[in-house]
Design a protein around this nucleic acid. Structure first.
Lengths: 189, 189
DNA sequence: TCGGTTAGGGACTGAACAGTCAATAACTCA
DNA sequence: TGAGTTATTGACTGTTCAGTCCCTAACCGA
């Protein structure tokens, strides 16, 4: 019926996500986005209404790729018992040599306060992560004996630890320091 | 010898700090800053070389006001034993109803990666905080018996918890959730 | 009181910003 | 093959951006 779109929307969004992730919302210019997405201005505005909607779509893309992957790993029994999967999630942060941090955490700081849709998306991702951690906890030796409430609180604590680690990683905190934090955080578990 | 400055530099910087704290580096325009600082463009450029130098000075101001205050509270024996002072520091985060978060954490995410001076300042503040926590730990029942290394690791863990809490507070995480995280984080201590 | 010096104020600058538009291209279906 | 539809492109728009400049104001020492 009409001319088909030439670029792959998901691929373009992955690239836009990379730009917002690195530079933040205000720090990413349309020119940065266009260059990374490899499309022309007009094409972008045919596909998205404005800069904000690209950002929101990039956040969705982050959830569908990065967050879902993390949650899957947390649920995958091949990763050992629940606690070792949780430890693995935290230790993955040490691998962030590019110091990108976590797009969700970055969004929490730079946009959630001003954009209700960003706040809702960030909140939803946080809940999903916390829930997945609670489930992993239930599949650990100690956690299995705990009340659901205690598991929820411990899951929130671990989520909080994860966020801190990703902020520190972005700030340039050394990997061995991150390791010490992980060990201290999980010592009781 | 010459006309004296009419505005109070520290007061103006406190106001600039508020703008950067709320909006981030890129999100804060010169116009925003001028309005908050209540001075004219020319005066600002007489006192500071460019936007970046205002940001750096605002970070210094944050350290001298907010960070020093936190460290003092951590050291003040009137706050009970070391552990209760640490708990107090974490529970203060619940009082961030304006959801400002922590300027140091915000800077870690939005500028440290791109500006070596910001990175250095953030790193220095993190070390100072971690050290003050370690000292408080030494003045707690359990911590006094620990090795310096273990205290350092636990202090890093608590600093990390603090950072996570401030990010979550800015994202809109509920206060009772923050309380649960604090309790879970300090359970072993 | 006057000369030297620095602060204050605000109009001005060129660059970069997000977003629009009209001409053209590519496709489907009849 | 031609009509209808939507994508692509890049020049263009008005606005806002950080930073400059120049004139005036205020102060100090001589």
């Amino acid at each position: 019926m009409a001319r088909p779109r030439e670029f792959d929307t998901d691929k373009a969004l992955d690239r836009a996500m990379g730009v917002f992730w690195a530079k933040g919302y205000e720090g990413a210019s349309l020119q940065d986005l266009l260059k990374a997405m490899k499309i022309a201005r007009g094409s972008l505005y045919k596909a998205f209404t404005d800069k904000r909607s690209i950002y929101l779509a990039a956040l969705d893309r982050y959830e569908k790729t990065e967050v879902d992957e993390g949650i899957d790993a947390l649920r995958n029994p091949d990763g050992g018992d629940g606690l070792s999967r949780i430890r693995e999630m935290l230790e993955d942060v040490k691998g962030d040599v590019a110091r990108r941090g976590c797009f969700m955490c970055n969004a929490a700081i730079d946009r959630a306060r001003f954009d209700p849709k960003v706040e809702a998306k960030v909140t939803a991702m946080l809940w999903r992560l916390q829930d997945a951690i609670a489930v992993a906890l239930k599949q650990s030796k100690k956690g299995a004996r705990w009340s659901a409430k205690r598991r929820a609180a411990t899951a929130a604590h671990i989520l909080n630890t994860y966020i801190g680690l990703r902020v520190l990683a972005r700030s340039g905190y050394p990997a061995d320091g991150l390791q010490a934090i992980i060990d201290a955080s999980l010592r009781e578990l």
